[in-house]
Amino acid sequence: MTGLGFLYPGHSAEDDYPRIEQLLGSDIRVDVVHTDIGEDAHRVDALLEMGSPGRLAQGVADLRLAGAEAVVWACTSGSFVYGWEGAQDQVRTLAQAAGMPASSTAFAFVHAVREIKVERVAVGATYPEDVASLFADFLRAGGIEVTGVRASGVVTAAEVATWGEEEVLTLARAADGPDAQAILLPDTALHTVAHIPLLEKALSKPVLTANQVTVWEALRLTDRRVNAPTLGSLFTREPIVQV
């Protein structure tokens, strides 16, 4: 049994995680610990506080007790808002506090884009424009070309959590363009896991979503690879053979 640990801010789309655990269909356990979200706002100052070391450290003891082998900070904006170097410092501090390999959803997107071997992506963000542009900057710092950014201007995670299939598909289509090889939907407050097959069929290209790549990143940290086509193109790589 491989235990994956996640620090998730507040309560929005955390039910994506047990859904993913079920779809993985193997000896993978997903443990989610909720951190204090502070002020629910897609605003730079609020996001910096949300991802501060003190808030993240509060949840690591529970993950250690659960037997997690790696931890991922399951918040895209609460990591990329620090910039590339700052987000690396955030992950290093988290790994030291947890005593296990660590990452964040922001880095998960960069690693996932590399995994599916694309170079040009479009972003469909729920965030206001200034925050969405910071995510594009983060991707570029990771060597990824961003062909376009669609910002929706939603201020709170609570509102994002109410979006259903129609809103998610509309966002993905609005973000898409002929130059984009994949579409990225970077908000862990957005329910997407149930919609990934529809999104990839409708757009005819890979779609990477926040909670999807977050779990994939934890699997990467534990050297596990699971073939689960219902979780999209990212999960259709051949599993690693253990010898």
Rank of each mutant, 00 (worst) to 15 (best):
M1L: 08
G3T: 06
L4W: 05
G5H: 09
F6R: 04
L7I: 01
L7N: 00
L7E: 00
Y8F: 10
H11Q: 07
H11G: 02
H11V: 10
A13L: 04
E14L: 13
Y17A: 00
R29I: 00
D36A: 12
D36I: 11
G38A: 01
G38D: 01
E39D: 11
E39W: 04
A41P: 08
H42F: 10
V44E: 13
V44H: 14
D45G: 05
L48M: 01
A57N: 04
L63A: 05
R64T: 12
L65W: 03
A68P: 02
A70I: 01
V72E: 02
W73I: 12
W73H: 06
W73K: 04
C75Y: 02
G78N: 02
F80H: 14
G83S: 13
G83R: 05
W84F: 15
W84Q: 09
A87N: 15
A87K: 08
D89I: 08
A95C: 14
Q96M: 14
A98D: 04
G99C: 12
G99Y: 14
A102K: 03
S104K: 09
A106P: 01
F109V: 03
V110W: 07
A112V: 07
A112W: 12
R114Y: 08
V118H: 11
V118F: 11
R120F: 05
V121Q: 14
G124F: 02
A125F: 09
A125D: 03
E129V: 11
V131F: 09
V131N: 10
V131T: 13
L134D: 07
L134H: 08
F135S: 12
F135E: 07
A136W: 01
D137W: 05
F138P: 06
F138I: 01
R140H: 03
A141E: 07
V149Y: 02
R150Q: 15
R150Y: 14
S152C: 15
G153C: 13
V154H: 03
V154W: 03
V155L: 13
A157T: 10
A157D: 15
E159D: 09
E159L: 15
V160E: 10
V160Y: 05
A161P: 07
T162F: 01
T162W: 04
E165I: 09
E165N: 10
L171K: 10
L171G: 04
A172I: 00
D179Q: 13
A180V: 01
A180R: 00
A182T: 01
I183P: 00
L184M: 09
P186N: 14
T188C: 12
T188M: 13
T188S: 13
A189S: 15
H191M: 05
V193T: 15
H195T: 15
I196F: 03
I196Y: 01
P197R: 12
L198S: 07
L199R: 02
K201V: 13
L203A: 00
L203M: 02
T209N: 06
N211Y: 05
N211F: 00
V213I: 10
V213F: 05
E217G: 11
E217C: 05
T222Q: 00
D223S: 13
D223K: 15
D223W: 10
R224M: 12
R225M: 12
N227C: 08
T230C: 09
G232N: 02
L234P: 12
F235R: 06
F235G: 03
R237D: 11
R237H: 15
E238C: 09
E238T: 14
I240P: 01
V241G: 08
V241P: 13
V243N: 12
